[in-house]
Amino acid sequence: MKSISLIFLLGVILLFKPITLHAGELLISPVNIDIPPGERAALLKLQNNSNSPMKIQIRVRNWDNDKTKPKPKVIVSPASVNIFPGKQQVVRIVNTGPVSNIDKERLYRVFLDEIPDASSASDQGLLLQLRYALPLFIGGPDLSVSRTNNLIQLKSIWNRALSYSHNSLTNQITFKNQTNGHARISKLRFADENGKETFIFSGLLGYTPANSQHSFDIPSVALANTSILSAEINGVDVEIEAFRK
């Protein structure tokens, strides 16, 4: 199970890119919360690696944060925790809606808000509220290395079902996901005619939900419409071709 140390993050981190400032550390594991088909709950471990107590509030929201949609049928227990320095707290994320199944994936975000201690305010009275955002996947097919070790099959599926288009005028790249599960896109790169690879985005670019298209802003690159990209999709390295007509 992978974990990552997120250090004093400011604001809502929707693409889960860590920002490092000078403050305490919260160790979060896992950073991708998954409730596989047939299961009802997942565990989230929080460890305080700082020298001060932490108070964390945990909430679940819709993936797109659309407040007009029904609230997620997910509960968090406990929903608020106090973690002393060097200690760990385990939180249960429980699906109270339909039993997760392989045919339909439900996506949510889990927000962890660190409640600042009023006594720690600066001389100007400034209190910084920190927010961590983690993806929550319920159900859906086994399309990630966290669910299956069959890398050959994963490569084959994503190579057929994920494609892209590039708009050089707006510096946007659009991914088309034709599977019933999300695509986590990272380490995006392309090769020139000599085979030399150029990274477009070396970290996590973002997510394209099941059966959808999603556009991302990228740096200006000399990318032809016929170029074949490579990226890490849900933990497996895949070649991605341009949209098929």
Rank of each mutant, 00 (worst) to 15 (best):
R59Y: 01
L127N: 15
V236F: 01
N177M: 08
E241L: 12
V74Q: 09
F137L: 07
I218T: 10
G38H: 15
G203A: 14
E25M: 10
L154A: 11
I19V: 12
A210F: 03
N48V: 00
I19A: 08
L223R: 08
V110G: 02
L14F: 12
I4S: 12
L126T: 14
L126C: 08
F8D: 15
T208I: 09
R61A: 08
K155R: 14
V94D: 05
R59L: 06
K67S: 14
I75F: 04
A133G: 14
P36Q: 07
L127C: 11
M1H: 09
Q47S: 13
D237C: 04
N159H: 13
A210W: 03
P135L: 02
G11I: 00
R61I: 07
F199S: 03
A191S: 15
I102P: 06
M54C: 11
N225C: 11
V99A: 13
L136I: 09
T170K: 05
T208D: 07
G235N: 04
A183Y: 00
F201K: 01
I7K: 14
S186R: 05
N51F: 06
Q178Y: 02
P98G: 09
K155Q: 15
I28R: 00
R131D: 00
E232D: 15
L10D: 12
D64F: 04
W158D: 10
F16D: 15
I233S: 03
